[in-house]
């Protein structure tokens, strides 16, 4: 394995380390709240794993520069208003055809590139050759984050409830209390059994 290859996988290794730290907290720590913290760390490292997969070298965030977007908006819907973006008055996009499928995008980018002012002209970025990172992992992880906070909230509510009943949030103490109860319950059941034949005989 060369140095370059190792650098290309470095992100994954750090993510694996973080994941395993979270995993260790979950299985080794007896405090319920601490386990939830571990679960959160694990979760966040999974987000990082997905997000680093979506990264492309030399790319930018998947947000289209306002010029190009506005040009697409003109292209798609001639009636929409664009008072906020007055600078692309001279596009002549109104005369363009009705076809705005996938091919339309390049055309739009082309138009925007030729506009005299605005983001593309100012930054000197070639509008047709902007490389965007992959938006799909971001979308999936947005969903995962929100679901994650929902489950965390639920777990914390359960912990509060456990604390109300058991008076502790330490796993081993809870197990001990459960065992004592179970033993006490069996004893009582045995006593009842012993007592009941005598009652029926009388």
């Amino acid at each position: 394995m060369t140095m370059v290859q190792a650098l290309g996988l470095y992100n994954y290794w750090v993510v694996v380390f973080l994941m395993m730290t979270g995993f260790y907290i979950v299985i080794a720590r007896r405090n319920l709240i601490k386990s939830i913290l571990g679960l959160n760390i694990f979760q966040t490292s999974v987000f990082l794993l997905y997000i680093s997969m979506g990264k492309i070298d030399g790319a930018t965030a998947p947000i289209v520069p306002p010029d190009i977007a506005a040009a697409a908006a003109h292209h798609g819907d001639h009636h929409s208003d664009h008072h906020g973006h007055g600078e692309h008055a001279g596009h002549g996009v109104v005369d363009h055809g009705v076809d705005h499928g996938v091919d339309g995008a390049t055309e739009i980018a082309h138009e925007a590139a030729h506009s005299a002012t605005g983001y593309v002209a100012m930054t000197g970025i070639d509008a047709e050759n902007i490389v965007y990172s992959n938006p799909l992992p971001s979308v999936l992880m947005l969903t995962a984050i929100v679901v994650g906070i929902a489950t965390t909230a639920l777990a914390l509510a359960l912990i509060v409830r456990v604390r109300e009943d058991y008076g502790t949030v330490e796993e081993d103490e809870i197990l001990q209390i459960n065992q004592e109860e179970w033993a006490a319950g069996r004893e009582r059941a045995a006593k009842k059994k012993k007592a009941s034949p005598g009652v029926s005989a009388r």
């Binding site: 947000i63 289209v64 697409a72 292209h75 971001s138």
Partner: peptide
């Protein structure tokens, strides 16, 4: 695809 479908919504995500 979003440029055509979404009438120029800048944020693809």
């Amino acid at each position: 695809r979003t440029q055509g479908d979404m009438h120029g919504l800048p944020n693809v995500v």
